[in-house]
Design a protein around this nucleic acid. Sequence first.
DNA 1: CTGAAAGCGCTTACAG
DNA 2: CTGAAAGCGCTTACAG
Lengths: 338, 338
Amino acid sequence: MRNDEAAGRTPTILDVAAFAQVSKSTVSLVLQGSTRIPEATAERVRNAAAALGYIYNQRAASLRRQSSTTIGVVINDLMNPFFSEVLIGLESALVEAGYTVLMGHSQEDPRRQERLLQSMRELHAGGIVLCPAIGTPPENLARLRDSGTPLTLIVRAHDRAGHDFAGVANAQGVFLATQHLIGAGHRRIGFLGGLPGTMQVDRVSGYRQALAEAGIAFDPVLVVSAPPHRAGGYGALHALLDGEGAATAAVCYNDITAFGALSALGARGLRAGADFALVGFDNVLDAAHSNPPLTTVDIRPVELGLRAAELLLQRIAEPGRPAQAYEATPQLVVRGSG
Amino acid sequence: MRNDEAAGRTPTILDVAAFAQVSKSTVSLVLQGSTRIPEATAERVRNAAAALGYIYNQRAASLRRQSSTTIGVVINDLMNPFFSEVLIGLESALVEAGYTVLMGHSQEDPRRQERLLQSMRELHAGGIVLCPAIGTPPENLARLRDSGTPLTLIVRAHDRAGHDFAGVANAQGVFLATQHLIGAGHRRIGFLGGLPGTMQVDRVSGYRQALAEAGIAFDPVLVVSAPPHRAGGYGALHALLDGEGAATAAVCYNDITAFGALSALGARGLRAGADFALVGFDNVLDAAHSNPPLTTVDIRPVELGLRAAELLLQRIAEPGRPAQAYEATPQLVVRGSG
DNA sequence: CTGAAAGCGCTTACAG
DNA sequence: CTGAAAGCGCTTACAG
């Protein structure tokens, strides 16, 4: 003999059923919005639930139903506003679709990432969206995908074939940026930031292509690698100007690299746009209000998150479909910096 | 008669038990690391699990155990790097403690926030950390807390008494900032950004207090309210300088307001630090590499997240303890802007 | 239209 | 040291 009302226990459908004087099947049915139950009964059940402060137990329901209302999202670098914006789009679309997001931050550490993915699988996430940390073994991704968890990759296209993927036309974007600088009369153009063995490869290739099309020789002195954050951009700009390259302009690996470069320019008493031309990549929110406002390549970060969510949702709906991809079309946004 | 191996079903402890030739109780025990099972048997079970690609079902385990390995975090504004950094600290500490985070973005909308909180309760989050959206009815928070879900509030201290809370000494921080400007010789100091009816009240009070201590009369013309984002700061700086206040310096509601103001200063051909003094509040990562680097009040955002996690974890461990609070001690960081 | 019963994948006393 | 059994809170055929 239980006496749940007396104890502080949280009520279950059994309590609701007793209160409403129906069976628990009936309660379950009305909570699911079944039309099989006459409105009068349904009303009584809903009132009982409200009166008892009943809270639906998704965990039990999903277990029984072998379904999930949860999606895992693991991001590599939340210090970069680009990823915050992607996350915003992702969360928004996923919540819209009735899911709750399990969020993890790999901090660019593949081992941390593995632990996070493992937890999400144990929690039975209905799908996972992942921006793979640098150094993630491609076979881990294939194994994850083949294990039956719907997976969509974002931004970094490790092993593009066979995975749903939402990313960016890197080369094309940087091509646009470089072309813009060339059009403004620059000939000595640097490439600032990013690390070899990452997307830097693709972005530099867009840079070289634009140079080549304009008949400008590629000069390796002009590309200075640096970790993709503000401090990296700060150091890279100084290195570029302290070097022999005689650069008058630079395209940056991404916006935060450009912000760091903007700061370094200021430190040298130079003004971007007047004394030196700088263009970024991403078009994060901050780019519109930097000092000066940043000319950059817009890849619509929030929309990228939205699209990734769509891709995942579609795969959940139709597991057997062939892998799809969304590739953001880069668009140059000219502001004050170059 | 099941034949699970044949079907593509994901293996359960029953499958592991069959493979290892033990009962499922034994499997459960070794998965939990019980010492009651001899090492030889445990070894056999672990090998079986690995061989079958078994994945522990947290959902089932938590249901049975009436526990949770999940914590809900709902943030109001992920476009503000301050909150990204708080989230980073939160996630890091929570994962460290063995939890996975359910993340929601209220976007400053109390109704969206309610839905998010509801989902998290249905998923049986073991606790919730919340930065209440503007307009959240205090009674909702009290009800949530009283429903038995451990709750810690951050940043905004709606109804401070009775809630675990991690926040900031707002008045003191702005007092420091204002005092610094006064010490540098400024007498006409603006206050930029924030909206009436929010934490702006507390921050302005610190500003007024510093003014009062220095014998400077408070002039309402010098405080210009604006939504707390970059565009707000941009507009507020212009409004301040276009007004009659004759300001030579300003303290900002937060760093992103200051970034917008920095941008506006640049647009007017003015240089922060030389032509006008500007100080921010938060010390987000970007502040060290803005143009010029931002003098600001450091409230250690990441640490705030860490502390909030600790508070929640402690409440989970000891539900009956009195409400605790962490209040970040603000510290002035002098950089180039003022 | 509603109820009794089985089962989702675990854990946990309780025997033996 | 290991197994049989009950139960966490739901859902879902299946009867009636």
